[in-house]
Structure formats: structure tokens, C-alpha cells
């Protein structure tokens, strides 16, 4: 069955006939849909007249674009140098075990949380740091993870 992507039309018309817009266009599409599905990328390709290969090429080049559905809350574990020497790995392990993530899973089965690593959040003096959605938490230790996650679990 054909999926209905008419909710993207407003975004597409905003960018039509402008150059250098592919990245912000895809950012807006991802913001609306939560991720970039193959079908959505094809729809944008046809509507904009941009080859699907170019769209896929950009979507897979930049780490911000997600090709799979994401959890309701995004947890970013900072992997910067300062965090690395302050045991960011321990924080990541604590998060994975608290969220019950197995193997290379990055999203919880209830779609509440997606865990990802980011290069550096730039809050090095508070290392180790994680960011849940837009809120940054610093000076963490593996024991402090549970309390942070509970704040987000309750509203579910």
C-alpha cells in the first residue's frame, strides 16, 4: 500500500527551487516523521526532482540522520576526551544494563529510549556527561544513572 506523505508537502514547497537545501530539508522531514524511511526519501526525491541516490548519500553520511525509528527520549552519551578519561564507558554500560539493551540494540523494545554516542557535547568540565533530549546531566557516576532514567520513565 502506498504511504501517505502529504504532511511533507508544506516542507517541500518551502525548499523547492532553492540550492544547497538538502540537509535542512531532510532535517525538517526527520523532525516531522521521527526518522528517514526509504519510502519518505523516495517521496522527497520524486517531489523535489533530486536523485534518490543523492538523498540516500547525504542521509547516510551525517550521523544526525536516522534511518530507523527512534525512541521517545534520545539519550546521548558524550564520548569526548574528557569524558573518556572520566569513565564514560562505565556510564554507557550502566545505561545499557538499566535499559536492558542487548547486543547491538540501541532502542528499547517499548520505544521509550534510544541510546547513542556523540563525539563531544562541549561540557568537558562536567565530565562525564550525558544529554537526555535537550537536558544535560554532568558529573555522573554509574550509580547516578537510575535516578535520571526514573524521571523519564514516570511520565510514560
Amino acid at each position: 500500500m502506498e504511504q501517505d506523505f502529504s504532511m511533507l508537502d508544506a516542507i517541500i514547497s518551502k525548499y523547492r527551487n532553492r540550492s544547497g537545501i538538502l540537509i535542512p530539508l531532510l532535517q525538517d522531514v526527520q523532525h516531522t516523521l521521527g526518522y528517514l524511511s526509504k519510502e519518505a526519501m523516495r517521496y522527497v526525491s520524486v517531489q523535489m526532482g533530486i536523485p534518490a541516490a543523492d538523498i540516500y548519500g547525504v542521509a547516510t553520511f551525517y550521523s544526525m540522520f536516522k534511518l530507523k525509528p527512534q525512541g521517545k527520549h534520545i539519550i546521548r552519551v558524550c564520548k569526548g576526551t574528557a569524558c573518556h578519561v572520566s569513565d564514560a564507558d562505565g556510564i554507557k554500560e550502566a545505561l545499557r544494563s538499566e535499559l536492558g539493551l542487548q547486543g547491538d540494540e540501541d532502542t528499547t523494545s517499548d520505544m521509550m529510549f534510544t541510546l547513542m554516542e556523540v563525539a563531544c557535547l562541549g561540557c568537558c568540565s562536567l565530565a562525564p556527561v550525558i544529554m537526555v533530549d535537550d537536558t544535560t546531566y554532568g558529573k555522573l557516576n554509574p550509580e547516578s544513572i537510575k535516578a535520571i532514567l526514573e524521571r523519564y520513565g514516570e511520565e510514560a
Partner: peptide
């Protein structure tokens, strides 16, 4: 122009490619 998460875009020729909307 907002970046989209690629360290190599700090390199000036890559940065310009990115502003133009490419990889």
C-alpha cells in the same frame, strides 16, 4: 547553516560541500 554531525566538515573544502547540501 547547521551541521548534521560529521567531524570532517571542519575541514574547509568539506565544509563548503556541506553548505552546498552535499556529502
Amino acid at each position: 547553516k547547521e551541521g548534521a554531525g560529521a567531524f570532517v566538515c571542519g575541514e574547509e573544502t568539506a565544509l563548503m560541500q556541506s553548505i552546498e547540501g552535499k556529502r
